[in-house]
């Protein structure tokens, strides 16, 4: 059968739509995903203000806006396929004509759209409360923001395939990853570059995480008004990371499908 773009598009749209509906259909989800980042970033902003670092309050608020996506990627994207495996949903996906790539991309798109309101809520509340010195938005900012999201969700796609291989429960891996990655990627403070408090070796590790590069670039546009001429290496790196993680994720997925059909236990949970 030829690759059908119509089917691909229908699956992307359906998966994205369901994700958004499911997110807002669950009150607890809203509480955790809007409330969590809002509280963390507000608490940090107060801390920075009282510590006499008013320029850092902006970092905390920007971080809150992005933390929501990072949470969404880890808790909803990365674990999704292993949940789908446990519930039997992955079985249906594999044995239907729907391409897995379309399902994952739809899931990402839905996650981004569904998280947007909570991200905006954090940014608006933080801005009103603390009036941080944000530079006016530029095209570069939009570009970096979008690339950061693509790289972040690309990581989600790669992780979600990887989780199928690991015998540990998705929740356990998430728990293990969430804090260290949040810390290293410097969501709430500069973890790489001149103002980073971290030793250079740790900075080097941190720079391997796409979120780190994204946060660094965002901070430099928003607070230091840097433009394309200064940021192009970051942008190139971010784009390369996005492409690589999506590529690896999708390759891994088709490998998993092939391998799963041979072994019989990667795609379905045995009783």
């Amino acid at each position: 059968m030829r690759f059908s773009f119509t089917l691909w598009a229908k699956v992307v749209i359906a998966r994205a739509l369901i994700r958004v509906i499911a997110m807002y259909g669950d009150p607890l989800w809203i509480l955790v995903n809007v409330g969590g980042p809002l509280l963390t970033s507000t608490a940090l902003a107060f801390l920075y203000r009282f510590a006499g670092l008013p320029q850092f309050t902006g970092f905390a608020i920007l971080g809150g806006g992005i933390a929501a996506y990072w949470g969404n990627v880890l808790w909803s994207m990365a674990s999704q396929l292993s949940w789908d495996k446990r519930s039997g949903m992955l079985y249906l996906y594999i044995t239907s004509p729907a391409p897995l790539t379309a399902l994952l991309i739809g899931m990402s798109l839905g996650g981004i759209l569904g998280t947007l309101p909570s991200s905006i809520a954090v940014l608006i509340t933080g801005t009103l409360l603390f009036k941080p010195p944000f530079s006016p938005p530029t095209i570069t900012l939009v570009l970096i923001f979008m690339l950061t999201l693509v790289a972040l969700y690309g990581m989600g796609i790669a992780l979600s395939s990887l989780y199928l291989f690991l015998s540990r429960e998705a929740e356990e891996i998430n728990e293990a990853l969430y804090e260290p990655v949040s810390f290293l990627s410097g969501i709430y403070f500069p973890s790489i570059g001149r103002s980073s408090p971290l030793p250079i070796a740790i900075q080097a590790v941190a720079a391997l995480i796409p979120l780190t590069i994204g946060m660094d670039s965002l901070r430099r546009t928003v607070f230091y008004a840097e433009g394309l001429s200064e940021l192009w290496p970051n942008i190139a790196l971010l784009a390369a990371m996005a492409v690589t993680s999506i590529y690896i994720g999708l390759k891994m997925l088709s490998y998993i499908e092939r391998r799963g059909r041979e072994t019989g236990d990667i795609l379905v949970t045995l009783k």
């Binding site: 509906i21 249906l92 004509p97």
Partner: peptide, 20 residues
């Protein structure tokens, strides 16, 4: 199988989309 916080109708619609 299915999405808990989505209606039965929407769930069935979703599965219909897997077949285009």
């Amino acid at each position: 199988v299915g999405f808990d916080f989505v209606t039965a109708r929407r769930n069935l619609w979703f599965f219909s989309q897997l077949y285009g």
